[in-house]
């Protein structure tokens, strides 16, 4: 099973994770007593990258309406910041003594923290992006709940006008998300749900139209028409709720599938 639950996060962290584990192996193999190269330039590049990431992250947590992001992002950024400080200290120490053991320890620790910190930053950000899609799914559920009170063509037209843009946004966003997921089962479930929602939407509208037509004529069979409409509405809501559930799963939720 993949460790990272999106391809984006995987492509960012996997190469550095490999490097960090190799560094740890070298260290565990006894350091070989080699001298450390001059690390001033590469450490400066890392520090600069940390400064830029922290800047973007702080701006994001300041401007967002997402309270969880606002709360979690600064902590994640602090970890990256601390990691950069460790690396700067390590570079200074190793410049004075290229065989310095504390310098080597700080380098390993700093690199690990960069990896963990960047991972946390990306996860906090990713969860926030998922919450945006979930919010749209919930909005769609709210619109669907109105279906049962639509009793004339004018209201049906308005209903379609309200539902269509949000439904189309949800399907596009979920499809985009699905493509980015590394977890095969999550991908399959989301794809299936989106297809179901797309299929059911026009059938639901059609059932609402039939209900309205019967209601405006002799009313014969109106109960069955309402039942059919409610069934379709319920099916669409089930699919949307399943989308919400699976969107919030990560690869760490494997037990769910056992």
């Amino acid at each position: 099973m993949p460790v990272f639950h999106t391809k984006t996060i995987e492509s960012i962290l996997e190469p550095v994770a490999q490097q960090v584990s190799r560094l740890v192996i070298i260290h565990e193999e006894g350091e070989a007593g080699h001298e450390m190269p001059d690390l001033e330039r590469p450490v400066f590049a890392v520090s600069k990258a940390v400064t830029n990431l922290v800047k973007v992250g702080r701006e994001m947590s300041t401007s967002t309406d997402d309270l969880i992001l606002k709360q979690d992002m600064p902590q994640a950024l602090n970890k990256v910041d601390e990691a950069a400080r460790l690396l700067v200290e390590a570079a200074k120490l190793s410049k004075i003594d290229p065989l310095s053991k504390p310098a080597r320890m700080k380098l390993i620790e700093g690199s690990r923290w960069i990896l963990q910190g960047t991972s946390n930053v990306l996860l906090v950000f990713d969860e926030s992006e998922v919450r945006k899609i979930v919010q749209d799914c919930k909005k769609t559920l709210d619109y669907l709940s109105v279906a049962e009170v639509v009793e004339n063509m004018e209201d049906l037209v308005q209903f379609v006008r309200d539902l269509s843009p949000i439904l189309s946004r949800v399907t596009v966003e979920v499809c985009k998300r699905t493509e980015d997921l590394t977890h095969q089962i999550h991908r399959e479930v989301l794809n299936r749900c989106v297809e179901q929602v797309k299929t059911l939407a026009p059938i639901l509208i059609c059932s609402m139209k039939i209900f309205i037509q019967i209601l405006s004529q002799d009313g014969k069979g109106v109960e069955e028409a309402a039942e059919n409409r409610n069934y379709l509405c319920g099916r669409m809501s089930e699919e949307l709720n399943e989308i919400i559930r699976v969107l919030q799963l990560t690869t760490y939720d494997e037990d769910e599938w056992d």
Binding site: T8, S11, I12, L13, P15, V16, Q19, V20, R22, L23, I26, E31, A32, H34, E35, M36, P37, L39, P42, V43, A45, V46, K48, A49, V50, N52, L53, V56, G57, M60, V80, L87, L107, S111, I114, L115, T118, V121, L122, F125, E129
Partner: peptide, 29 residues
């Protein structure tokens, strides 16, 4: 914005990997 966050995280990860490569380069030489 969101894509900028991903871009900056990628730059940081790359520069960290390059730093470690520099250290490893000496160790493995």
């Amino acid at each position: 914005d969101s894509s900028e966050m991903v871009r900056q995280a990628r730059i940081l990860a790359q520069s960290t990997a390059e730093l470690i490569q520099a250290i490893r380069g000496e160790a493995e030489a």
